[in-house]
Amino acid sequence: MLKNQAGIRFYIFLAIFVFLVMFPFIWIFLTSLKPQNELTSFAWFTSNATLESYASAITTRPLFRYMLNSFVVSGLTTVLSLLIASFTAYAVTRLPIRGKTLILGLVLASSMFPPIAILSPIFNFVTDTGLRNSYIGLVIPYITISLPLAIWILATFFQKIPWELEESAKLDGATPFQTYRQIILPLATPGIFTTAILVFVAAWNEYLFALAINTADAWRTIPVGISFYQSEYTVPWGDISAATVIVTIPIVILVLIFQRRIVSGLTSGSVKE
């Protein structure tokens, strides 16, 4: 059923699809360049393009502080969960332990947990330990999201590494941990990197915990910070669209550079090859 040559109709369909997907971004970008008095107009382009919305977006709210917060929290979460997940994934895929199905089942079950079900105890814990409005206070709950994800994807990547190399390392007298560190880890680097991107994006996008735990403006992350641009009385669409453009640019760059890796990571758990 698959015709392998693509005709003109196909490319028109493709163009429409890409346009529809990208339309909100295009419109938001065009809005961010409009002066205040043209924000309610439906003209695509403005003849008085200005950067005043950008200036306002970064001065009325600490947008760069939000970005820094998101970056630190996501970075810490990624490093921590990958470190722990790579151990687990290795043990589950390569070592002769019992209860693998049980362990993977537990991991899968915890990735299905609704965050709202654990929010209030985590909130109490973070409050009692004085970690509200700090980076660590968010990293702890983010482990719940990132660790199962990382274990699941890494296990798929580890599984693909050929056994022969490991066998020969064993014959050469390497201890199991040496095999892990010197044979498996270097070979799994692309997979680990892919997993890191996915975990980072998941932590970067988290909203519920960040909203409840880091309530001080200086500790808000990007998603929460952006959603607080609107006040009860006014919605500064110019500022919001400029802020959206600023925070979307790093994501677009990340996606452009790593798109192949991201796709391989996203599809690794769902498709058996």
Binding site: V21, F25, I28, N205, V247, T248
Partner: peptide
């Protein structure tokens, strides 16, 4: 172009 909507935070998409 398919990955960008997936990658941006849901809260940001909701604001847009």
């Amino acid at each position: 172009s398919v990955l960008v909507p997936w990658a941006i935070p849901t809260a940001v998409a909701a604001m847009m």
